[in-house]
Amino acid sequence: MKKLDYPFKKEDILDLRVGDMVLITGKLFTGRDAVHKRLHDGVKSPVDLQNQIIYHCGPVVIGDKKKGFEVKAAGPTTSIREEPYQWEVMRDYGIVGVIGKGGMGPKTLKGCSDYGCVYMHAIGGAAQVLAEKIKSVDNVYWEDLGSPEAIWELTVEEFPVVITMDAHGGSLHEKVQASSEEELKKYL
């Protein structure tokens, strides 16, 4: 088990390889479909994302800014929908990690190599285990997108992920896709 602590550094990211199980401690910013589309459309991010990690997640949050927020559930959402946009966010904002589920495609994989970033796979559906790792909700941006689509600034402790795409061209998803297609031929 490896550890990745805040503030995140490029050299730590470059050390990570496909198959590594990692516990993250520090800040995460949620961002999913609407956030990526808005960034792609040219609207500037309301937060500085340099050396930060984006989490593809639409949490269940109750409460408000006055009373404070409580995260009731916070697992990853399917990442492939951000495939058209993710590499741009890596290029324009200098993010070092993307957490999601299901993996991403060749554009993102190239982005990881070009800009020094990793794709980290959280366990899909494990919303309670992952919500327990959230120690505080520090801020929220772009609430007009609706609660699941807003940017939530979270502090996490030992948040468990598996590296499935690294900054050196490695992708577990490409590998499993190819091997399972090959294997299927035997049974048709």
């Binding site: 559930a73 697992g75 959402t77 899909g124 919303a127 309670q128 699941p148």
Partner: peptide, 8 residues
């Protein structure tokens, strides 16, 4: 905790 298994 009587909370959603998955956030979706």
């Amino acid at each position: 905790k009587s909370q959603p298994l998955c956030q979706d």
